[in-house]
């Protein structure tokens, strides 16, 4: 997805994992994904650099659709669609 497309997304759930280090954001995502339905969108806020590699890899394995990353000043917004 392009940056413009990502900016238009309204996530069904946003989980704020800023200020936690590995594996905090991953565990937050795992917890939140249970609360949404298949096809819904989850947004993860993370200030941990490694999350940008971890979440796409996790999505690959769990068969969720990773949509992309939006960079903010001091954190990233990661979007995924639940399988």
């Amino acid at each position: 997805m392009t940056t413009e497309e990502l900016k238009k997304i309204t996530a069904n759930q946003i989980v704020d994992a800023r200020g936690t280090a590995c594996p905090g954001p991953l565990l937050a995502a795992k917890k939140a994904i249970g609360d949404i339905e298949s096809g819904e969108i989850l947004e993860i806020l993370s200030s941990d650099e490694g999350t940008k590699h971890d979440i796409p890899r996790w999505c690959e394995k769990m068969e969720h659709d990773f949509l992309g990353i939006l960079e903010e000043d001091s954190y990233s917004r990661l979007f995924l669609k639940k399988a």
Partner: peptide, 11 residues
């Protein structure tokens, strides 16, 4: 513990 909890996130 980090590897263990990470693995649990992978179901």
């Amino acid at each position: 513990m980090i590897i263990a909890t990470g693995a649990a996130a992978y179901d």
